[in-house]
């Protein structure tokens, strides 16, 4: 019986087919390098990575509900709420920084888990539930901050938005969670069950998968990563803004989709999402360097988004195989 070996040989062609947005990424990178002398400098590349890391962290989180075939619209508001709470804890209540971070991360995961619980227990559409909690969370942020920024953050906290030996701390955080969650997706039953659930929920239930807990877990991860995003944002800005991260949920969804994560569920992975986030960061950075007005920037970003999705569809059709297996 001809059974392939477990080792899959890496091929650039296959990798590009899986992540066609990499092509666009390389293309844009080349364009900006040619058009702007400042673009390719090490300092600027580090800037891009630093600026993309917040989006990437939250986008990695939202990838989990999207793989189940759901969505989490509350992440933007959750970034703001958790950022404000972290600021409040370390300033007003003088809670030690590590404890404050742990508390906020736990709260984010809990609030995300509550999203999942409502979706599962009420059999509601994830879109509807998280649209509601998006409003609730944003409102709670405004109530908590009374609409005013919280500043006076101690240096032990703003360190998270700083750099060590020229390397942004947020980038290191991003790398750690990327490795952690990539492992979770590829090498644990949770990951396998997540893809199964997204592929066919009824089959997953009949196969004895605890569909409810997997879903709650997915939203919990999304909430936890939004909390981490809030912490990074507060550290970077040296203050918490009640209107922070408005619309971030749409940017994270865009990053995931650019990275080839299907909104229908069951396919996609974190490498793609990361690439999508980097693509968006590069685009914003490059257009700024070229001095293109922020009004026109939105038009260009939208057009490139459409182009990326079309290219993705086209390469997938040509290669047939597209979505990744759960364990592969």
């Amino acid at each position: 019986m001809g059974i392939d070996s477990t080792h899959r040989r890496f091929s650039w062609k296959g990798a590009l087919a899986r992540h066609s947005s990499a092509l666009i990424f390389l293309f844009l990178f080349a364009c900006f390098s040619l058009l702007s002398g400042r673009f390719l400098r090490i300092g600027n590349v580090v800037n891009i990575l630093e600026q993309s890391s917040l989006l990437a962290v939250v986008a990695i989180g939202i990838t989990f509900p999207i793989i189940t075939g759901g969505i989490d619209l509350s992440v933007g508001s959750l970034v703001a709420l958790c950022g404000a709470l972290a600021a409040g804890l370390v300033t007003g209540h003088a809670v030690p920084v590590p404890l404050a971070i742990a508390m906020v991360l736990a709260l984010g995961a809990l609030l995300g888990g509550i999203n999942g619980f409502i979706i599962v227990a009420g059999r509601f559409q994830p879109f509807v539930v998280t649209l509601a909690t998006m409003a609730i969370t944003r409102g709670a942020t405004l109530v908590y901050t009374q609409g005013r920024p919280i500043s006076g953050i101690p240096a032990s906290f703003t360190f998270l938005g700083d750099r060590v030996a020229g390397i942004p701390v947020s980038l290191l955080i991003l790398l750690i969670i990327l490795i952690l969650f990539q492992g979770l997706l590829r090498f644990t039953p949770f990951g396998a069950h997540l893809y199964a659930l997204g592929g066919n929920e009824e089959t997953a239930r009949l196969a004895g998968i605890s569909v409810h807990w997997i879903k709650i877990g997915a939203y919990s991860i999304s909430g936890g990563m939004a909390a981490l995003g809030g912490i990074i944002l507060t550290a970077r800005l040296w203050s918490a803004q009640p209107q922070a991260a408005v619309g971030l949920e749409l940017q994270t969804i865009a990053a995931a989709v650019l990275g080839g994560v299907s909104l229908a569920g069951g396919s996609g992975g974190l490498a793609g999402t990361l690439l999508g986030a980097l693509l968006m960061g590069t685009l914003a950075n490059g257009l700024n360097l070229l001095g293109i007005s922020s009004y026109l920037q939105q038009v260009i970003i939208g057009a490139i988004f459409i182009a990326a999705v079309m290219l993705d569809l086209w390469t997938k059709e040509r290669h047939g195989e597209s979505s990744q297996g759960a364990l592969s």
């Binding site: 396998a192 069950h193 893809y195 199964a196 592929g199 066919n200 009824e202 089959t203 997953a204 009949l206 196969a207 004895g208 998968i209 069951g266 396919s267 979505s323 297996g325 759960a326 364990l327 592969s328």
Partner: peptide, 18 residues
Amino acid sequence: KAEGLFLNMSVRDNLAIS
């Protein structure tokens, strides 16, 4: 198709999932 298989997943994943 509707209840038994994860059509887009591999043979291995379909077999191993439980």
